[in-house]
Amino acid sequence: MADLTYPLYPIFAFLGFFLSLVPLPWHLQAWNSGTCYFMMWSSLACLNQFINSVVWHNNALNPSPIWCEISIRILMGASVGIPAASLCINRRLYHIASIQAVSVSRGEKRRDILVDTGICVVFPIVYIALQYIVQGHRYDILEDLGCQPALYNTLPTYFISYMWPILIGLVSAVYCVLSLRSFIRRRVQFNQFLSSNKSLTAGRYFRLMALAACDLTFTIPLSIFIIWLNTVATPIAPWISWEDTHFGFSRVDQVPAVIWKMNHRLVIATEATRWFTPLCGFLFFALFGFADEARRNYVKAFWAIVRPFGFKPTPIQPGRHFVSIG
């Protein structure tokens, strides 16, 4: 069965990988750890999807078991890593809007980074490790999609795997609402704080809020849809024992597209999930890739590249409003 999304999807996935990383340097300089983790998880997920969509185009072979072991864990980690990064962004925005936990020293900044690292890195690693409890066999390979986790559809799977994106999204939504309320109530103090803060402008604050709000509008409905799909697509099997769940664990199911695309609900869920990944990269770049600080950094990068070839910016003379090269 022909893949109608090829080569469009690999192109978008690779662009999502690249565009997610473009604003990373200046966000690292500003110590925006939640934002940086959002970029890292988005770019890693996009790169993973790009490789899978190219290697497994029109085939369901198993040429690289080691890569599949890595790939399914990237998929698992990104499923909670991106919402967790959004949670950290909303959490920081709330603290800024309420003017109660804004970093004023390097020690406080380090503590904020450690908290964000625990939420965005340590928690996804623990989440990935826990998936082994409900992993029925090594992995599946779906033609045109590549490596996919093989989670056994039992009741514990919903608590160990499926519920976490929803819980993270709900906590993030609470922070988002509290941020808006605090901003409206304390707008004058908020503006005074921003005027004295070098790493955060009003424009960047509202772009971060827009990013987190957009992530929420996709994460929670998509997670609920996936849970519903798993409950109706196949019967929920009873949890019998560890040995029963992991019986024949070394098996790898290789599924042709003509088989898995017969389930229209599965097609919708799969396509929505994998297109969500490059969408995160494009959304982030749309919000931050054209901002004032981004354009300034593009100019710096341009002159850093062309300077070894003898080009350099000409200082602007009084009364002139252009820059030439010479």
Results as ranks from 00 to 15, higher is better:
Ala237Tyr: 07
Phe311Met: 03
Lys300Ile: 06
Tyr205Gly: 08
Ala129Asn: 12
Glu271Asp: 10
Ser324Val: 11
Ile96Thr: 12
Asn58Gln: 14
Val252Ala: 02
Tyr162Thr: 12
Ile113Leu: 02
Ile184Lys: 15
Phe249Glu: 10
Val80Ile: 15
Ser182His: 04
Leu211Trp: 03
Thr234Lys: 13
Ala78Lys: 07
Ser105Ile: 06
Gln189Val: 01
Val306Ala: 10
Arg186Glu: 14
Val306Cys: 06
Phe322His: 05
Val267Tyr: 10
Arg320Thr: 09
Ala60Arg: 10
Thr117Ser: 12
Val177Glu: 09
Leu229Thr: 10
Glu108Gly: 15
Ile160Glu: 08
Gly81Tyr: 01
Ala150Gly: 13
Leu4Glu: 13
Asn263Gln: 13
Leu8Ser: 15
Arg106Tyr: 03
Trp31Val: 00
Asn59Cys: 13
Thr154Met: 09
Thr245Val: 15
Asn90Glu: 07
Val104Tyr: 03
Thr201Gln: 10
Asp244Gly: 02
Glu143Ile: 10
Ala2Ser: 08
Asp116Ser: 12
Phe288Ile: 12
Leu229Ala: 06
Phe193Asn: 01
Glu243Val: 07
Tyr162Leu: 14
Gln135His: 07
Leu24Met: 10
Trp164Glu: 11
Pro308Met: 05
Lys109Gln: 13
Pro83Ala: 14
Leu61Lys: 14
Ser195Asn: 11
Ala294Cys: 03
Ile72His: 08
Thr201Met: 01
Asp140Val: 03
His27Asn: 13
Leu87Ser: 04
Asp116His: 10
Leu155Lys: 10
Cys120Trp: 03
Ser79Tyr: 05
Ser182Asp: 12
Phe206Lys: 14
Cys120Met: 01
Arg92Ile: 00
Phe218Asn: 02
Leu279Gly: 14
Ile119Gly: 01
Leu15Met: 12
Leu28Pro: 02
Pro63Glu: 10
Ile268Arg: 05
Asp140Trp: 00
Leu21Ala: 04
Tyr298Trp: 04
Glu293Ile: 02
Tyr139Gly: 08
Trp56Lys: 07
His95Gly: 12
Ile259Ala: 11
Ile96Val: 15
His27Gly: 02
His57Ser: 04
Ala233Phe: 03
Pro25Ala: 11
Leu194Ser: 09
Phe190Cys: 04
Arg181Cys: 08
Phe12Ser: 15
Gly118Asp: 05
Leu229Gly: 04
Ala97Trp: 02
Phe183Lys: 03
Glu293Phe: 04
Pro149Thr: 09
Leu19His: 09
Ile82Cys: 01
